[in-house]
């Protein structure tokens, strides 16, 4: 005879709620210092770093002080790019973790001179899967997709696109060379995320940067 089984109810802590609490803590810390923050996500090589640098240059010209966190598995290349562009910056190596989380960002916020900045761009690890599950406590989430990744990226990673506020379709100046119609990406995104904003950018030339900033409230 099989052993008798019985079920009990448990009220254990929800892991996602824990993430939300940590994110809320970051959000309050940033608000307390009057900093607006943005989580910038996207695949490796989509152009996140250059787009942040370009936004920072425009904001700087308007008298806005910009900081950035360079989230990467390893290395400090993006951090150095931010520093060279004159940004207050911090490097956040995840050591093989495929995404940033609110806990790690919280530690960086303790070290960053938040009273010296008005806007903080947090560049996530290049990945369109895992960052979707980890809110950081930012004002808005931006996802960058470059045309060179193909016109089917929204369909391939629907969950991240469904939950972000702004889509920057980057490297549109290369669209003809790689045979991709950027409007297809925009169309898929609008179906999936009717409240999301779409902007076409070419970070190298600065095209679309003003519009992207407008969608972020600048």
């Amino acid at each position: 005879m099989p052993p008798r089984m019985h079920d009990i109810h448990l009220d254990a802590k929800d892991l996602f709620k824990r993430q939300l609490e940590l994110a809320e803590h970051n959000y309050q810390r940033l608000k307390g210092r009057g900093v607006r923050a943005f989580n910038v996500m996207g695949a490796i090589g989509s152009g996140k770093t250059l787009l942040i640098v370009q936004m920072a240059q425009v904001l700087k010209a308007r008298g806005v002080r910009v900081g950035a966190i360079a989230g990467d598995v390893a290395g400090d290349d993006d951090y150095r790019r931010f520093r060279e562009a004159g940004l207050v910056a911090a490097n956040l190596n995840t050591g093989d973790q495929c995404h940033l989380d609110a806990h790690g960002v919280g530690h960086v916020l303790e070290e960053l001179p938040l009273n010296e900045i008005d806007v903080l761009f947090i560049e996530n690890v290049g990945n369109l899967v895992c960052p979707a599950d980890f809110p950081l406590g930012t004002d808005a989430d931006v996802v960058v997709v470059s045309v060179t990744e193909g016109d089917d990226m929204v369909r391939k990673h629907p969950k991240i696109f469904a939950q972000t506020d702004v889509l920057a379709i980057n490297k549109v100046d290369l669209a003809a060379f790689v045979g991709v119609d950027p409007h297809k990406l925009a169309e898929d995104y609008r179906k999936l995320n009717p409240h999301g904003k779409v902007v076409f950018t070419a970070a190298r030339s600065g095209r679309g940067v003003d519009e992207l900033l407008a969608h972020l409230g600048f």
């Binding site: 008798r4 079920d7 448990l10 802590k13 929800d14």
Partner: peptide, 17 residues
């Protein structure tokens, strides 16, 4: 977006055979 343990199924020890 939930991820939580909500219950357990236990094998009772010393249950009658």
């Amino acid at each position: 977006r939930d991820l939580a343990i909500v219950g357990l199924s236990l094998e009772e020890q010393g249950s009658p055979t």
